[in-house]
Design a protein around this nucleic acid. Sequence first.
RNA 1: GGCGAAGUAGCUCAGCUGGUUAGAGCGGUGGAAUCAUAAUCCAUAGGUCGGGGGUUCAAGUCCCUCCUUCGCUACCA
Length: 522
Amino acid sequence: MSEPFYITTAIAYPNGKPHIGHAYEAIATDAIARFQRLNGREVCFVTGTDEHGLKMDQTARGLGRATRDLADEMSSYFKQMCVTLDISFDHFCRTTADSHHTASQAIWKRLEANGDLYLDRYEGWYSVRDEAYYDEAELTDGEGGQKLSPQGTPVEWTVEESWFFRLSKYEQPLLDYYAANPGFMRPDSRKNETVKFVEGGLKDLSVSRTSFDWGVKVPGSENHVMYVWLDALTTYISAIGFPNDTEEWRKFWPASIHIIGKDIVRFHTVYWPAFLMSAGLPLPKMVFGHGFLLSRGEKMSKSLGNVVDPMELAQLFGVDALRYFLLREVSFGQDGSYSPEAIVTRVNADLANSFGNLAQRTLSLIFKNCEGYLPAIHGHHADDQALLELVGNVVSTQIPVHFEELAMSQALETWMQAVFACNAYVDVQAPWALKKTDPERMETVLATLFICIAQLAIAVQPIIPGSATKLLDQMGVPQDVRNYARAGSHWFSPLAEGGFQIAQPTGLFPRLELPAEEGASV
RNA sequence: GGCGAAGUAGCUCAGCUGGUUAGAGCGGUGGAAUCAUAAUCCAUAGGUCGGGGGUUCAAGUCCCUCCUUCGCUACCA
């Protein structure tokens, strides 16, 4: 009955503390995961940290610390971020876990058994200072004929023993797969880039390193560690049990969606599928490359000093305000711009003024005029029917459709339209005036609004889970109707007849103010 | 250089396979209302849909070209 849904974020590289981009990805993925749960799917949501590789090792050495020690600390920040931001992950995976090493070695052996690994030499222009290889075309000539990397550091021709993966063998199979599965890569613009890249020809991939040892040891070649991406990508399957035939593994693989940043699309749409093909495993159904967040339209970078700490933002504006802003303001898949002004404006307009105030004014009227008891419905007028229909349609049809398409900003746009309709209805019906002229009509109006507000709160749970839950709790809405299938069912009358009484309503969406200190790190 | 994306009201953006007077939010302006977090509602603000050319009965919406911005063009992740 309930179809499994497996979704992942990218496995973050904890070379520094999490930034707003990590938070954005986690929040977006969480909204999708929560939506699917409310939509009746059995969800597995995996996130985690990719802790191997040269950079972690270098960073730790630079700090004079044990790499493992640094990894422990940095990974904990990412996990803490998820907890703070209400990210409903099922597994937080670390590539340093023993089980992950086992899984990585298992997939390695599968590639090897399939004849896709061979030992050779990797030759190229290597910069000792950057500890990276560069393509001939990237180099520039420095003084005295010294070749320089794009960073301006000297490079020298270097030869290193390395295991290679026969990526070239998968050129055509990948293209065939893309053609046969048009929904595999999204958005389309990313897909075009990948297809062109693969059509341009694939070279075999160096998948082991001997220059450092912070990684997963290559089976049978103990002086080699696996290329970090091979190891990192394997998280998606080790998280649910691979190579063991666990219940989760059987249920959830292949993944429904990998949510990743647009910068790592290639690893997920070329290397990962090729590895899986070689290992004889099914491929994920979709890879979605989201855009980047820009600070006032500019890239965030340490040198510009405009890097935003998501924890600081959450504390300043509130977790749900941040979640709402990011998902409402940024069209998922495209780049988006962030600024404190934009957050304050958007959240105040939508959550505080429109929705929050709608709930507050309605519940206050019920609290004052009905002693907190839910009013009875004395026959609906056409206006009531129209509103109920509009809200019902938005909640049970339009929003789910947009969520299925991963169009969270559009889901919220239609949600707001329903909120506007409710506010317009309040003003036209003027229940405060009906109190004296037609108390029964007032009750019907308030009951209608109560139903609509509850449905709107149910619908928006994936975006702002904390405040939506508090509101639904205040309203006494039963747990079992807090989903898309049952939001529109007849739960109101039983609740009212059961004698439920609301307490003095408290505001859930405070109006935000711009931080006094301008030019601070936000 | 090659490939790709974007350029729509003051601001942020919607506009799918071409079709009535080009839309929304925010902001601005003018009203209404006072239940509510001074929140809400109604009306409105005359943007050559980057420039030019073309296809069509009809084009932000297709084709060509030019301009501007951005991304990708593999082994740091």
